[in-house]
Amino acid sequence: MIGSSARFAAVAAAASLASASFAGTLVASGDEWQLSNHAYEAPYAAGTMQFVNSLAATFGGSNYLLLTGNGNVSQSMLSLATAQFQSLGKTVSYATTFDLASASAYDAVFHFGQSVNTADFAAYVSGGGNAYVSLGAGWWGTAAAEAAVWNPVLAQFGLVAGSEWFPVAGFAKADVTVGPSDSLLWGYGQSIEKLTPQSSSQSYVRGTFFGGPEIGLIGSSAVLGGGVSGVPEPATWALMIAGFGLVGAATRRRRPIAC
């Protein structure tokens, strides 16, 4: 429960019941650096490659779009992930903005923290598209503000973002305890968890920092068998959210990386 000093943004719930068998798979990360070239450096490289293999198997298809409108994670910073996707038989394209009509031509869209039309993004996944979305970029100044922007979308797919940055300075290694990886690069970021225990979703990757408590790092709208099943299980859920906190998180902005 959020303290009395925090303001609440009550988000109306109960949007249309949607069958997961018709929607695509949404994978949401609390940080945008996981697929950057920095993530292919030691000691993260092996875990990153495992994770990218799992994403490719989860999304399937052959035509991927990478959004490069966040200056920190530019096209040049995604060259190693691009090369790995290509080695797996994927064709990779780039765009600096997200356009729903254009996105429909792709099997999966990868977002790296930039501002997008979140309603269009949700419509893309609801219409059968697969998407990887990254929070933690600091576009809205605080983790709480970013969570308030994305949580109405994430809730449609059974996920919720936390309202505080993780207390980790700079880049750090997340020791993965659950998920298709050994470790992942992390740079600040925030948690991604199941919306409710009953949600048809999962805490896809969980981990710890420096022996701390286990945290949800990356969530998925579909329950992925072994992290590689790309077919969502048929299920329906009602969207019920209230009281996303807009205040109370640390105000620290993300540190830009000079490339």
Results as ranks from 00 to 15, higher is better:
residue 93 S to E: 14
residue 93 S to W: 05
residue 95 A to H: 03
residue 97 T to S: 09
residue 97 T to F: 00
residue 98 F to M: 02
residue 98 F to A: 01
residue 101 A to Y: 14
residue 101 A to W: 13
residue 101 A to P: 10
residue 101 A to E: 15
residue 102 S to W: 07
residue 105 A to N: 09
residue 105 A to D: 10
residue 106 Y to K: 01
residue 106 Y to D: 08
residue 107 D to A: 02
residue 107 D to M: 04
residue 108 A to R: 00
residue 109 V to Y: 01
residue 110 F to I: 06
residue 112 F to N: 06
residue 114 Q to R: 02
residue 114 Q to S: 12
residue 115 S to P: 09
residue 115 S to C: 10
residue 117 N to V: 04
residue 119 A to I: 10
residue 120 D to C: 02
residue 121 F to A: 05
residue 121 F to G: 00
residue 122 A to M: 05
residue 125 V to P: 07
residue 126 S to Y: 09
residue 129 G to A: 06
residue 129 G to D: 10
residue 130 N to P: 06
residue 131 A to W: 05
residue 132 Y to W: 13
residue 132 Y to C: 01
residue 133 V to M: 12
residue 133 V to R: 05
residue 135 L to F: 05
residue 135 L to W: 03
residue 138 G to V: 04
residue 140 W to G: 12
residue 141 G to Y: 13
residue 141 G to W: 13
residue 143 A to F: 12
residue 145 A to G: 07
residue 146 E to W: 03
residue 146 E to I: 01
residue 148 A to Y: 07
residue 148 A to P: 10
residue 149 V to I: 08
residue 150 W to N: 07
residue 151 N to I: 03
residue 151 N to E: 03
residue 151 N to M: 02
residue 153 V to H: 02
residue 155 A to E: 11
residue 155 A to K: 00
residue 156 Q to N: 11
residue 157 F to Y: 06
residue 157 F to R: 03
residue 157 F to G: 08
residue 158 G to C: 03
residue 158 G to F: 00
residue 159 L to P: 01
residue 159 L to K: 01
residue 164 E to D: 14
residue 164 E to Q: 15
residue 165 W to E: 12
residue 166 F to C: 03
residue 166 F to K: 00
residue 168 V to P: 09
residue 169 A to K: 08
residue 171 F to V: 09
residue 174 A to R: 00
residue 175 D to I: 10
residue 176 V to N: 00
residue 177 T to L: 02
residue 179 G to C: 02
residue 181 S to W: 02
residue 181 S to F: 02
residue 182 D to V: 01
residue 182 D to E: 15
residue 182 D to N: 13
residue 182 D to I: 00
residue 183 S to N: 11
residue 184 L to D: 08
residue 185 L to K: 00
residue 186 W to L: 13
residue 188 Y to V: 14
residue 188 Y to C: 13
residue 188 Y to G: 15
residue 189 G to H: 04
residue 190 Q to Y: 10
residue 191 S to P: 08
residue 191 S to F: 05
residue 192 I to W: 02
residue 195 L to M: 09
residue 196 T to R: 11
residue 198 Q to W: 01
residue 201 S to M: 01
residue 201 S to A: 13
residue 203 S to I: 06
residue 204 Y to L: 03
residue 205 V to I: 10
residue 206 R to T: 15
residue 206 R to L: 10
residue 208 T to Y: 05
residue 210 F to I: 12
residue 211 G to L: 01
residue 212 G to Q: 05
residue 213 P to G: 03
residue 214 E to D: 12
residue 215 I to R: 15
residue 217 L to Q: 06
residue 220 S to W: 11
residue 221 S to H: 00
residue 221 S to D: 13
residue 222 A to L: 05
residue 225 G to L: 12
residue 225 G to S: 15
residue 226 G to H: 06
residue 227 G to W: 12
residue 228 V to T: 14
residue 229 S to P: 04
residue 230 G to N: 04
residue 233 E to A: 13
residue 233 E to C: 09
residue 234 P to D: 14
residue 234 P to A: 11
residue 235 A to N: 11
